[in-house]
Nucleic acid binder design. Structure first.
Lengths: 223, 223
DNA sequence: CTGTCAAGATATCTTCGTAATTAATGGTTA
DNA sequence: TAACCATTAATTACGAAGATATCTTGACAG
């Protein structure tokens, strides 16, 4: 498959190599990637679906303004980080988590079912069991935040997991396996305890504390 | 363009007419819409970009599990509401706004520039000028919430406008031009005042109040 | 007799080169 | 000046050939 064609063009747009408003030279891209028009066309169709390009007869295929790009799309987020780390985007991402996740925790405290709490407990256990295995720790962390969003029983909130997922992946890449100074389990357990106690305010507070710790870790190690 | 082909197939998937995991009969769709394979293929490529379908050689093109759909995508949101109003999704949407917008207001209180505040004031003025013109009122409302997100200077938060936009459009459709009982300007002005005063907590509270009022209006009129 | 494995057949997606359609452009005429 | 029509550059659509992963079949070993 020529799946990499999409990715390369996307990254050129995201990095500004293909500026907003500029028209793409289809023929040049065709010869560069050595693919048929159909292949290129389908790649551009994917980017069009994500609001990054638009095609009009006689005017050509051009890059849409950045304001129209689906930055909340999982693919777009990954493409952004794939080439080079973008500190500002990472900060935006963490900031969004800082808003969404405490709210989600609060909601989960009201809505969580027994099964939801069990899933959170399981993620907690996996986190404890991970120990020094960085990859397992990241997986458990992701499972925890996924379970939290699922516990809100709000489909749109659940889809925010693409943002959290990318944030965790990027954080993991930045700290490069270097674990946080202190055990992550207690801060996570505090969230679960608050949810089990059906205390929305406490759940939100615990989650804010958790996120602050996580971000401080990155700032310390990354600097 | 056969843009409607995408929309029809998308809606069939979203409504469950094409169940998760089921494989699509390409030939049947081709004859039904009377389009070539290429056209159908590009339509499916768009849906694939939004995580709704996947194609594998020999296995066919099948509907991906609902958990993979990009529900935060503007097109997907519109398609969901296009056919029939989905109360639960509307509630989810409002709930998400209830989490994101107070947080955004709080952030805006810290970050907003003079220009941002001016934009909020302009939206406020437009809202006052709209009077009984429902369409102008909706436009001003949208402009206000857009300006608020922009004032956070967080690109990802700004992109949440697709969610807010859909929410407002659907609310407008539900109340069908029937304006809220009381003037919307004061509640909105309270948010701007708090931002101008650089008071994050007050901004968040004012926004929560605003959203509660808006939702109550819908609940009252919609019932 | 049963389970495992490998090689071939096949259904489906994928790609190609060419023809048709579209809309912006520039010149012409009333 | 304004409306209209031919030109033309680009997207859009087509039908057929190519590639690929899956399924089937058969043989072999346990």
């Amino acid at each position: 498959m020529h799946g990499q064609t999409v990715e390369v063009i996307a990254q050129r747009i995201l990095t500004g190599q293909f500026a907003e408003g500029s028209t793409l030279d289809i023929t040049a891209l065709q010869t560069e990637f050595d693919v048929s028009l159909t292949v290129l066309r389908e790649a551009l169709k994917v980017l069009a679906a994500k609001g990054m390009v638009d095609a009009r007869p006689k005017r050509g295929t051009f890059v849409r303004p950045r304001a129209d790009w689906s930055l909340l799309d999982g693919d777009v987020l990954r493409w952004q980080f794939a080439r080079s780390a973008q500190p500002s985007l990472f900060e935006d991402l963490h900031e969004l988590r800082g808003i969404v996740e405490p709210g989600a925790a609060s909601l989960a405290a009201v809505r969580a079912s027994e099964a939801d709490v069990a899933a959170l407990d399981a993620a907690l256990a996996a986190m404890a069991a991970a120990g020094t295995d960085a990859s397992a720790a990241v997986a458990a962390d992701l499972a925890f935040h996924r379970a939290l969003l699922a516990a809100t029983h709000n489909e749109l909130l659940v889809r925010m997991e693409v943002v959290i997922e990318t944030g965790l992946a990027e954080r993991d890449r930045m700290v490069h396996g270097a674990l946080g100074t202190d055990d992550p389990v207690p801060s996570h357990r505090a969230v679960v305890d608050a949810i089990r106690a059906r205390d929305p305010g406490a759940a939100a507070s615990a989650m804010r504390l958790l996120l602050k710790k996580a971000f401080d870790d990155v700032a310390r190690i990354g600097s």
